[in-house]
Design a protein around this nucleic acid. Structure first.
Lengths: 151, 151
DNA sequence: GTAAAACCTCAAGTAAACTTGAGGTCAAGC
DNA sequence: GCTTGACCTCAAGTTTACTTGAGGTTTTAC
């Protein structure tokens, strides 16, 4: 009786393997996300993870946000702001995406600015620590710790 | 000028501490960059690092490139393409920056595209693995390994 | 009823880009 | 001529985002 892996019409209990397959990430990643509080589920009688289908959308959103350059911690914050018990509505998601839209717009603006100054500054030698805009992240957009952060 | 050894004046020799102070990075970072082959210098009689002033510009360029989201390995490649012995000219730097300009333009384009699809896709639920553009990095712009990559 | 596939936990490994620490050397000022 | 600060090396630690492996349990398939 092949009703497990593709028995999808059943109400919403996905195993970790199913979530992984459907969301395109590794099982270990699902473990990790759950441990980090990015997704939530419950356990069956045999201690195996079970997830509601909504988790697929969450994982999708996580992945998209990562492509946008957001660190997991920030994504976790955003997801934590979503209602945990009631079903997340389209409006909830829209609000979340609106916030990220703004963030992205700022980053794009900064990136464009940097790009346009690149030739000028690198070429001419004005890369002084105090004088050059390329070197001074005094903008409203803060730099972070070690490691790159966008895309 | 050309009074002393190997093409540089005596006062052009910077210690690691001076480089660090002037370029705004930690001494350990200078050690690290040297070890990674991003910058080069020589040793004095007491085995202490000495650098030509040109290294300041290199460090500046490294930092800017990092702000742009380029990983060190890519920066290292670009810097390795610069002449090692003759003085790097403005034209050399211009060429380097031109390459990065293109790279950046592509990234900006992708980012803008993602941003514009964000509300639409997250809001409406089209984030399917196969169908959604946000989820499919099939674009000419490749994703990389773990860790974020832009700004 | 049993073998295989899927699952479990916990620890450790990976990569990038550095930082921190221990233990020792060099150089400049008084 | 000695103290102090800057420097040296090498090893190990840090963070993020996971992956890999060992050793053991549960579920499913036949």
């Amino acid at each position: 009786m092949a009703r497990t892996t593709t028995g999808s019409t059943r109400e919403a209990a996905l195993s970790v393997g199913e979530v992984a397959a459907r969301s395109g990430v590794a099982v270990s990643t699902i473990h990790f996300y759950e441990q980090q509080g990015l997704i939530h589920g419950w356990r069956n009688s045999g201690n195996q993870r079970r997830f509601h289908r909504d988790v697929l959308r969450r994982v999708a959103v996580i992945k998209v946000a990562q492509r946008l350059g957001l660190p997991l911690a920030m994504i976790a914050d955003a997801l934590a702001a979503l209602p945990t018990e009631r079903t997340v509505t389209a409006a909830d998601w829209r609000q979340l995406s609106a916030a990220w839209h703004g963030e992205l717009t700022e980053r794009i603006a900064l990136l464009s600015q940097l790009r346009d100054q690149l030739g000028e500054c690198i070429g001419c030698g004005c890369l002084s620590l105090e004088a050059c805009q390329l070197r001074n992240p005094d903008d409203h957009l803060a730099g972070q710790g070690p490691g790159a952060h966008m895309l």
